[in-house]
């Protein structure tokens, strides 16, 4: 039992990298995704972005991660740390999905909301900030939370380039004990609890932003 407990703590040290990755790549994904969604309103950019997005969705994430970690040094002459390579690869990849989510969210707002704002003489920038975006954010929250959960699970790929995350620690502990079952179960518990936590927080937010509440 104390063996299990020490394994539990050891694998837990991987939590730091997993969370740093998750946080970092979500920030990148959200910013780049927003930029892509905005640029898609520009007629000339649409085709370039569509090509970029179809590449990100049409090739394995593991390949994208390897591309950035192993070939960027050769091309640009800078060696990326495992953490930054992961943040960049996962961030760029998720930006494709977040851009789609945002665009669908904006398209889900009825035309009448834009027209009502115009009819009331509300300037464009305030219309986006105060009328449209709050509704978009509320609508896309479930999809966005879904994306965060996907991201969390995808960070486990960092183990393939030597990142010491929860996944990698569980493999190391497994190898040392000649038994993978318990360590992998421990890793599963960590991921599962994190996912549950994210879902729980999202439900809290959803309840707090409900329109019906007086």
């Amino acid at each position: 039992m104390s063996n299990f407990f020490s394994s539990f703590l050891l694998i837990g040290t991987g939590l730091a990298l997993t969370l740093k990755l998750l946080f970092g790549c979500f920030i990148i994904g959200l910013s780049l995704g927003t930029l892509l969604a905005i640029l898609k309103f520009c007629k000339i950019c649409v085709h370039v972005i569509d090509l970029f997005v179809s590449f990100l969705r049409g090739t394995p994430l593991l390949l994208q991660l390897s591309l950035i970690y192993f070939s960027v040094p050769g091309i640009f002459g800078v060696q990326l740390s495992v953490l930054s390579a992961g943040i960049i690869a996962f961030g760029i990849n998720s930006s494709a999905y977040i851009a789609e989510i945002l665009r669908a969210g904006i398209e889900s707002i009825p035309n009448g909301q834009f027209e009502a704002a115009i009819s009331l003489g509300i300037p464009k920038n305030r219309m986006w900030r105060d009328i449209i975006m709050p509704q978009v954010v509320k609508n896309i929250l479930p999809a966005l939370i879904n994306e965060i959960v996907d991201l969390l699970k995808e960070t486990a790929l960092i183990a393939t380039i030597g990142g010491m995350d929860i996944m990698r620690y569980s493999q190391i502990v497994g190898a040392a004990q000649f038994n993978y079952f318990a360590p992998l179960c421990i890793a599963a518990i960590y991921y599962y609890v994190l996912v549950s936590l994210i879902t729980w927080i999202s439900r809290l937010i959803e309840r707090r932003t409900s329109y019906v509440k007086a």
Partner: peptide, 26 residues
């Protein structure tokens, strides 16, 4: 000119008072 829509198009994330004062408050 101001338009009143068949389906009203009130802003769903604002309460009635906020719907009324938002534009003039700008």
């Amino acid at each position: 000119v101001c338009f009143i829509f068949q389906d009203f198009q009130l802003f769903p994330h604002m309460n009635v008072l906020q719907n009324l004062v938002y534009a003039p408050d700008l």
